[in-house]
């Protein structure tokens, strides 16, 4: 019951706010909607028993990425005329393309998947699993990230990637001397 409610609320938030993100004229409101959409996704994670990921979603997407985006919007606010058209000239074609993509994905999920998946894969119901296993997920995740038999290399690579991105972002966005003067 609670799970369904969480899922429905989460989906409505994610999709509705996502729609606002892609259609809104006011970029700032778009960013707010993006935040709400992230919140909805976090709710979807909750309905999937991934509490840790939901918290991570809040921390990283809302606490970091959204704020970064809002900062960028404020820094480039002169370009934010709400009067001009938010869409470019190819918006109809784009609509067609994304509808096509959705149609493909939808048919893949609804029609093709049942053709490929053997009957052993439970599609309708979640795999029953003890609470203890889900509770241990975070512990397992931690040991998988730093264990030698886990994702230690990708994990370290990800940290290097973040470091490089940080350095790169600072260098790219650093005002050049002539700009300051």
């Amino acid at each position: 019951m609670a799970e369904q409610i969480t899922f429905i609320i989460g989906s409505i938030l994610a999709l509705g706010a996502g729609f606002i993100v892609v259609t809104n004229r006011n970029l700032f409101h778009g960013a707010l909607a993006l935040m709400i959409s992230f919140l909805g996704v976090a709710a979807i994670y909750l309905s999937l028993d991934a509490g840790f990921l939901a918290a991570a979603q809040l921390l990283i997407y809302i606490g970091a990425i959204s704020i970064l985006i809002i900062f960028a919007i404020m820094l480039t606010r002169r370009m934010m005329q709400t009067t001009e058209d938010p869409f470019n000239s190819q918006f109809l074609l784009a609509l067609a393309a994304s509808v096509t993509v959705f149609a493909i994905l939808f048919s893949a999920i609804v029609y093709v998947w049942p053709l490929t998946a053997s009957n052993s894969v439970p599609l309708a119901a979640k795999t029953a699993v003890a609470d203890a296993v889900l509770q241990d997920t975070v512990v397992n995740l931690g040991s998988a990230f730093v264990g030698a038999d886990g994702y230690v290399i990708p994990f370290e690579l990800a940290s290097i990637l973040l470091l490089a991105a940080m350095v790169g972002a600072i260098i790219v966005a650093w005002p050049k001397p002539e700009d300051v003067a």
Partner: peptide, 8 residues
């Protein structure tokens, strides 16, 4: 595909 603003 369709937004004009890069941030969007």
């Amino acid at each position: 595909f369709a937004r004009r603003n890069a941030v969007a």
